[in-house]
Each structure stands twice: as C-alpha cells, then as structure tokens.
C-alpha cells in the first residue's frame, strides 16, 4: 500500500510537469491549429535560463524571469516564422516548428556545455514526512505549481478581457475580428504564454536532477497527453498529463514484476499504449471537441 501511494505521488509529480507542457501545446493549438514541435527547445531554454538566473536572484525570482524571457522568445518565433504561414497547411507549419526546435537546441546546448546544469531549486531530493510517508518535496512543489498555474489560466480565460478575446479568436477567427478582436495579437499572446509555460515546466523538470543536453526529450511525453485529453481542451491536457505521469510511474514500479514479458523499460512507451486505448474508445480524446462535418 505504501509503495502504491508513493508510486502515485511520484506519478502525480511528474504528471504535473507533463500537464504544464501539455497545456502549453494546447494553447498554441487552440490559437494556430498547429502542434508546435519547438516546445521541447523552449522548455530546455527555460530550464537553462533558470539555471543561470538562480545564482544571482534566487530560484523563486528566476522562474518568473525565465518565463518572461522565453515568452518573449515564443513571441519572436510567432512573429518571424509562424505569422507568414497563416493560411498554409498546418503540417507545413508543424515541420517549420521542428526546424526551429533543431536550431534553438543547438544554441541552447552551447549554454549547457558538457556538464549537468543545476537549476538551483530549494528542494533537491529532500523528503518530508506526510502521514508516515517519505514524500519528496519536489513532487509536492510540482503539483502545487500546476494547481497555481492552471488556476491562474482558468481565471484568465474566464474573467479577463484578453482571455475572452482569445477564446473568441480560437472559436471563430472571422467573427472575432468583426467584434473588434485583434486575432493576430491573440495568436501572438498565445505563443508567448505557451513559451512561458514551457519555461516554468523546464525549471521543474530540472528540479532535483539538473538539466543536460538530452533533457529536451521529456517534453515529447506531453504529446500523448494532449491527444489523450483532446487536442483543444486545456482541462483535457491537465488530465492527460497527470494520467501519463501516473501510468508511467506504475509501469515503472510494477511492470517488471507482473508483466516482465513486455521487456525492460516498457514504462517509457506505456503512455502511447494508453493513447491507443483511449483513442479506440474516444477518437477525439477524453475532452476533445468532435469535429463537425458539414456536407
């Protein structure tokens, strides 16, 4: 029982990071109808920025600063490479973001250098006693930051003018334009928000272990999460991210014992198995909007 609980908590911790990344993908998808493969590079860039800033200003200030910095980078990407592509097939745009990912990572790697960079988080691998369980502090921090971030996002989309405008632009661009919404500005805002979110997620990916040049791969785990949740649903992304984290964690702990024939390290691909299962039942994910076909 104790093991099961610890496994769940670990899953929720990592799941929170995946969820944040998944939300960043979904925000971009809702505004531009594209999956941005540049998010891994932005996440890595965010983590590296935190690792440089944490020394002088401390971790708690470094994270928002890095988020702002990477948001600016996301904005720049949107302005220079995505804006000219409006109206072009989304797959062309997706491949463009992949090209950007390669290019950005090369530059970021220079700043990482040969060593593991520590993000300077205050938790490390410390544990705290929760009802007799030694729970790692960083998992609690990850869940907490997810709650804060998602709460803020929901409030933003629900109550602020810009949030409303973004939702309108995502629902129907032309109608939104007619109502006076600057769709271009909303798209730019979405890319900036996604960049900032990726940076925050990056900082927490690095918590407890640091970042090195291969850390970017972690961001790809958000891909099954967004499909499981439904591409255009933020709550879906959160649920999907947490599910991926938990499934992965349980496979890591128990698959070797109960399903050894699946091979070593099956946990890595378990999110994709979950993905297949979910899609066989619900082709648009758990919370995705069914595409309406007009004939």
């Amino acid at each position: 029982m104790r093991d099961v609980l610890l496994t769940t908590i670990r899953g929720l911790g990592f799941g929170s990071v995946y969820a944040m990344l998944a939300v960043s993908f979904v925000i971009i998808y809702k505004s531009s109808k594209v999956i941005s493969f540049a998010q891994p590079a932005l996440m890595l860039a965010g983590a590296v920025l935190v690792s440089y800033l944490a020394g002088p200003v401390g971790f708690y200030l470094a994270v928002p600063l890095a988020a702002i910095g990477i948001a600016a980078l996301g904005l720049g990407l949107e302005r220079t490479t995505i804006r000219p592509m409006i109206g072009r097939p989304v797959f062309v745009v997706a491949i463009i973001t992949l090209g950007l990912d390669i290019a950005i990572r090369v530059v970021v790697n220079v700043f990482i250098g040969p060593d593991v960079r520590n993000v300077g988080d205050p938790w490390g691998l410390n544990t705290v006693d929760v009802a007799g369980l030694p729970v790692q502090e960083r998992y609690i921090a990850m869940v907490a930051v997810l709650v804060v971030v998602v709460g803020a996002l929901f409030a933003f989309f629900r109550y602020s003018r810009y949030g409303l405008a973004m939702r309108a632009a995502s629902l129907d661009q032309e109608t939104a334009m007619v109502q006076g919404v600057s769709v271009g500005a909303m798209t730019a805002l979405a890319w900036a928000m996604a960049g900032g979110l990726a940076a925050v997620a990056g900082a927490f990916v690095g918590a407890g272990g640091g970042v090195d040049q291969s850390t970017w791969i972690i961001a790809l785990k958000a891909l099954p999460a967004i499909i499981i949740g439904g591409l255009d649903s933020i709550e879906g992304a959160v649920v999907g991210g947490l599910l991926v984290g938990i499934v992965e964690s349980f496979f890591a702990s128990y698959q070797g014992e109960y399903l050894p024939w699946l091979g070593q390290n099956f946990s890595l691909v378990s999110p994709y198995v979950l993905l297949l299962v979910v899609l066989l039942v619900k082709p648009y994910g758990l919370f995705g909007t069914r595409e309406v076909e007009r004939v």
Partner: peptide
C-alpha cells in the same frame, strides 16, 4: 536491471 537514458526514466531502476 536495464534502464534507458533520461533522468525521468530512472524510477524503475530506483524502485528495483
């Protein structure tokens, strides 16, 4: 115990 690269992929090894 075989493991694969990635700091987030070490849970199984740690569990073992």
């Amino acid at each position: 115990v075989e493991t694969t690269a990635g700091t987030d992929n070490q849970s199984a090894a740690v569990a073992a």
